[in-house]
Design a protein around this nucleic acid. Sequence first.
DNA 1: GCGATAATCAACACGTTGTTCAATAATCGT
DNA 2: ACGATTATTGAACAACGTGTTGATTATCGC
Lengths: 244, 244
Amino acid sequence: MQTKAVLDEPTASGATAAALAPAPGDASVAGTASAYVRDEAAAERPTEDRRITRTKRALRGALIALMEERGLDAITVNDLCARADINRGTFYNHYRDKDDLLAVLENEVLADLDRYQVQMADLSLPVVMACQKLGRPLPLLVSLFEYLKDQGDFLHAVLGPGGDGGFGPRLRDSICTNLVESILHERYRDNPTPFVRYYVSFFASAYLGVIERWICTGMKESPQEMALISLRLLFIKPGERIEL
Amino acid sequence: MQTKAVLDEPTASGATAAALAPAPGDASVAGTASAYVRDEAAAERPTEDRRITRTKRALRGALIALMEERGLDAITVNDLCARADINRGTFYNHYRDKDDLLAVLENEVLADLDRYQVQMADLSLPVVMACQKLGRPLPLLVSLFEYLKDQGDFLHAVLGPGGDGGFGPRLRDSICTNLVESILHERYRDNPTPFVRYYVSFFASAYLGVIERWICTGMKESPQEMALISLRLLFIKPGERIEL
DNA sequence: GCGATAATCAACACGTTGTTCAATAATCGT
DNA sequence: ACGATTATTGAACAACGTGTTGATTATCGC
């Protein structure tokens, strides 16, 4: 429980304590807490009918499984219903078509990730440099990788071959771009030159690549390790000696 | 025609002259020469029937146009044939289905890009550092961006929304990864540690992001500018002052 | 020009789609 | 536990896109 302040070194910026606090989900104690979607579903509606919940969960599983083995393009609504052991009419009670189902699941993830953006606003270069010096991962990044790991089965299917393909860029725009913009500039954020725009695209895509690789290779590294790796990659220089 | 050697400074590596030579396509004089596909088609077959050429060209144009306005998923073979002013039976004389047509076009581009990989083997960190010092773009990169620009209409459609989505990663693995591996290590290329693998993914995806941004924003910058930008991005450090 | 070959047109069976309906089963509030 | 509500089921339907076929016409290479 490193909640308070692990950082007393003098840094050039103000709000370091806020930026080092854990993320909204706060899965630091309870292990892998998977109450992301359910929470918001239980919050906005009284309670969802069990049958509906069961149907949606079955379709989610069927979509993931079929994406892994056949690829998205080769999936029909028939396949989904057969795999989910669901009548085809039931499918159309909840989703317009195959792409709608996928879009709903994707949007859920992106909506969850949107919550982290508030925390990102508190980030700044001095903050991350401080963490880098201490050899500590950014709690925000740890929390983020933990969330991604919780959604591992879905993300592995969507980001892999046979997945959506269009989801990667959305993930990038939703997370990486804001993260990079928060961390890197402060000065060029307002009136970005053409080069700065490429600069942001460069690092945003870079971090998406890291995330994609992590997920597609089975998430062998822990969220803490990934947060550390991400931090190191930001400061590494070409030609520099790489230990570890 | 900066063909020979713009570089006499002492560098730590050997084959700098070879690495600074222009790429196989050599479109430096003839402007935007678009004889990539045709050349190899004319090389492998005696001559292709004009009718076939016309059909394929029409289908290529139709696919690109429809991808831009409707998106790939919303395109049917009927649509393609209607737009191309082609009978549907004719379509099936040349392609198995919609995805086959797209795959053929994609593979043509990737095959063209494969030719650049020979040149990339001659790259090394000292070479690119030398160019960086001189403020000159890597001729290989200039040539590469020129080729991408020639295929601009196709790439814009495929990489944009409504495009393939799966093509980005293939482009990355085909070009960026090898480019990064050639340039960056020499020492870690043989036995890459887990971190080095992320390191490569990081920069490979970063450069794909730059390419994607360039193409999707309409290729405003010249290939020379893009080569310079790419070079600068390699050496830039976070927090560093950005002029231009 | 002649032979070869590609494009056209119409027609076909087939699978998927999206919708409708009545009947059945499960869930929820009390 | 009950009744009212609501989701699921199974079947049928027309509409559409698919991939193929065969006969006919137009175009190409030489």
